[in-house]
Design a protein around this nucleic acid. Structure first.
Length: 749
DNA sequence: TGTGAGTTGATTTTT
DNA sequence: TCAACTCACA
């Protein structure tokens, strides 16, 4: 392919983005504007211009996006050695090499939410704190927020009077110590540790910056502070940072995504080139208008004028159903008619809902009609118990300090090692400062451990040693050994329970997965790579291209498109979610979520709600989502009681005969959010920071030097100055705050 | 130590 | 509603 081919068929705006080579680039890409095409063509263009593939690093948010990008680059430039992956994967690989700076051995384990919660529970117990009415989950969320805000355990300090803050202050360090004992990290640590290493080791940072001269960040609106710091650290000497994103599609604020990263990109990089992709190639005019009309109600955004040259298309349908059964039945029967008449294929349809728990009714309705469907991200494959058990064996073989894996497998299947024994071993381990495996291997000398239990433990130790011997072989073989030697397979074989048969089928699927992995990784020593894959992938990429109806959450729908979309359960408390009702920012995020869902539709869009819904085992009347009133009346076709809504824009939906479903735990409002919202600075989206926005110890970002910490402040007003420590070679630099363009990253307290 | 019943309690989105 | 956790009993 030559230059002309690469650029042909691109609009002037797209071409401008594709041919941009050096310097920062911000691509504001509306939905369906050909963003992926632009990004992949730009990569091809860079390669064409002689940029070595190894110098190009593309960071995405999801595996799906990375894979999509990789395959399209491969089509354009076969064999190109461009590095494309998720932030988390990049971080994991980075830490395998450089984790010792933060006390990690190369074989560290990545804990998922369930795993890390076990450690957190332990830390809570160890700290002996009273959780009051908070759940461990809430504590986990608060710690996660802190990590996303670049606050390490020794830096954390609670806001005055924040009850959960003081819990976190005690628990967070213990939790980190526990992780460290297990030679493990959680998801947030992957990113945080990477950012910390890059900050601590300027030479390494420089080296990486030089190695990755062209950085691209996809879905930039979803990056959090730590991801920002990483991207930033790699773009100082070679500021060829190209980011793509759309503030209107930011739906991960709850995970610490900081919309300001994109809203203020132009301030961070004053000489940035900004390209707006506003032409939509996906949807009909009516769909796009409806979506644009909705999102116009958001305040925090960069205005874009979306347009399309596509047909008007059919009206967007707004339908009110009696209850969720009628909703699901009608959706399914519409699909059925279209299939029968040969107008559509099953794969043309998608059903979206805000929460996964709502999928069931649609499953039933589709199943009744024998319509094939696929649920994306339902019960995640790698979260199933039997899969986690087997993977735990592998994890433990790889990292014998992994406490979660140890406790999971030591008595699975049952081999006579009970809680009492384990408690004694664990206690002894703690008193000696050993990890639990070391203690288990010396069980016979631990006081209080029965000799019978000790010999069982010795047997277990032998078992693991045997398995370790197979660790360098292919993964399928290793898993086969685990199944055979642990007696795990027998466990299912013996049983005729349907549940166990299903488990066995899942195990077989894992073996298939392993075989495919082996084919792609013929070189020995695949265990590390295999586990990394398993830890960072949430689902087996399923049946791409199968002719099925797709059911999925709104979040999962981002980046996809379907000819026909059903957007369901658009009700107060569901979309917007009840937990988001209290804050404007969260309401705007819910609105963006709906916007994302609507803009997935190419030709037909139906939005629906039910007047009555069974949810969480309870039946209740519902209130239509306020978002429905914000849809422009023009091009909207209403059905049933939905007619009442049309054209009543801005009138609150409540009428006296409807009652709001009771809010759960209404008194628990001051959760982690308050604490951390205060910890994050710069919530004002507009205007530069004022000089008294800066504080001692605050992290700040400088356009050239990257991220540093304020060590001293002096002067006042226009003349207020700050000494910032960037670490390493740059060291301390003094700035006049009103002139320096330092971006506050967080408050220290 | 292992199992099963009973109870509790918690329900968003994902790497 | 449903899964996870506790506790009592074999």
């Amino acid at each position: 392919m030559n230059d002309a081919d690469l650029l042909s068929g691109l609009t002037p705006a797209q071409r401008e983005a594709v041919t941009h080579i050096d310097g920062p680039l911000l691509i504001l890409a509306g939905p369906g504007s050909g963003k992926t095409r632009v990004v992949t063509h730009r990569i091809a263009y860079l390669l064409r211009r002689g940029v070595p593939g190894e110098q190009i690093l593309g960071l995405t948010f999801t595996n799906k996006a990375a894979a999509e990008m990789a395959s399209r680059v491969e089509q354009l430039v076969p064999g190109a050695r461009v590095r494309l992956g998720t932030f988390h994967r990049f971080a994991a690989q980075f830490l395998r090499r450089h984790g010792r700076h933060v006390g990690l051995q190369a074989n560290f384990t990545i804990y998922d939410k369930e795993d890390s919660l076990k450690g957190l529970r332990r830390a809570i117990a160890e700290a002996g704190v009273d959780l009051m009415n908070y759940t461990p989950d809430a504590v986990a969320a608060a710690i996660s927020w802190a990590k996303n805000a670049f606050i390490q355990s020794h830096e954390y300090s609670p806001r005055d009077g924040s009850p959960i803050g003081s819990i976190v202050q005690k628990v967070y360090p213990l939790y980190q110590r526990w992780l460290s004992r297990s030679n493990a990290v959680d998801f947030d640590d992957l990113l945080l540790n990477t950012a910390v290493v890059l900050q601590r080791d300027p030479e390494l940072r420089r080296d990486l910056d030089a190695r990755h001269r062209y950085i691209m960040v996809d879905e930039y609106q979803d990056t959090n502070l730590v991801q920002y710091a990483i991207a930033r650290a790699l773009s100082i000497d070679y500021p060829n940072l190209a980011v793509t994103g759309d503030p209107d599609q930011s739906i991960y604020g709850w995970r610490g995504a900081d919309l300001n990263n994109i809203l203020e990109f132009e301030r961070d990089f004053p000489d940035v080139r900004v390209v707006r992709l506003e032409q939509n190639y996906r949807s009909t005019k009516k769909i796009l208008q409806a979506a644009a009309g909705l999102i116009a109600h958001n305040v925090k955004r960069k205005r874009k004028d979306l347009f399309t040259l596509n047909d008007d298309g059919a009206d967007v349908r707004l339908v009110a159903y009696r209850d969720q059964t009628e909703e699901a039945e009608d959706v399914a029967s519409q699909i059925q008619s279209a299939l029968r008449e040969g107008r559509r294929r099953a794969r043309d349809f998608a059903v979206f809902y805000r929460v996964n728990a709502l999928s069931r009714e649609f499953e039933l309705a589709l199943r009744r009609r024998n319509i094939p469907y696929q649920i994306v991200n339902g019960v995640e494959f790698f979260q199933r118990r039997e899969i986690k058990d087997l993977v735990a064996y592998l994890k433990f073989i790889q990292n014998p300090r992994d406490e979660v894996a140890f406790l999971r497998i030591v008595n699975t299947p049952p081999r006579g090692i009970g809680n009492t024994t384990l408690a004694r071993v664990a206690e002894f381990a703690r008193s000696q400062g050993w990890d639990i495996w070391t203690a288990a291997a010396r069980a016979e000398s631990i006081p209080g451990v029965q000799s019978r239990a000790a010999s069982k433990l010795a047997e277990f130790v032998r078992l693991i040693d045997n398995l370790t011997a197979a660790a360098s072989g292919p993964m399928e073989e290793l898993l086969g050994c685990v199944l055979a030697e642990t007696g795990y397979r027998e466990l299912f074989r013996k049983s005729s329970a349907e549940e166990d048969q299903e488990r066995l089928a899942n195990v077989e699927e894992l073996l298939t997965y392993a075989r495919q992995f082996d084919e792609q990784h013929p070189e020995p020593g695949g265990l590390d790579a295999f586990l990394e894959e398993v830890s960072l992938v949430n689902d087996v990429d399923a049946w791409e291209g199968d002719d099925r109806v797709t059911l999925m959450s709104l979040h999962a729908s981002k980046g996809l498109e379907f000819p026909v979309v059903f957007l369901t359960a658009v009700e107060q408390g569901i979309l917007p979610h009840e937990r988001s009702l209290k804050s404007n920012d969260q309401m705007e995020e819910e609105r963006r979520l709906m916007f994302v869902g609507m803009t997935r539709a190419m030709e037909e869009l139906q939005i629906s709600y039910a007047s009555m819904r069974d949810f969480r085992g309870r039946r209740g009347l519902t209130i239509p989502s306020p978002f429905l009133m914000e849809l422009p009346k023009n091009g909207l076709q209403t059905h049933g009681r939905a007619a009442e809504l049309a054209g009543t824009a801005a009138r609150p939906p409540q009428t006296s005969d409807r009652r709001e479903p009771p809010l759960r735990r209404a008194g628990n409002g001051q959760g982690p959010r308050l604490t951390t919202a205060a910890a994050l600075a710069g919530s004002a989206a507009s205007g530069p920071a004022r000089t008294d926005d800066y504080a001692q110890d605050m992290l700040v970002a400088h356009p050239r030097h990257g991220v540093g910490r304020i060590v001293a402040l002096s002067g006042s007003g226009e003349n207020r100055k700050a000494v910032v420590d960037f670490g390493g070679r740059i060291g301390r630099v003094k700035f006049i705050l009103s002139k320096a363009g330092l971006k506050p990253l967080k408050r220290s307290r």
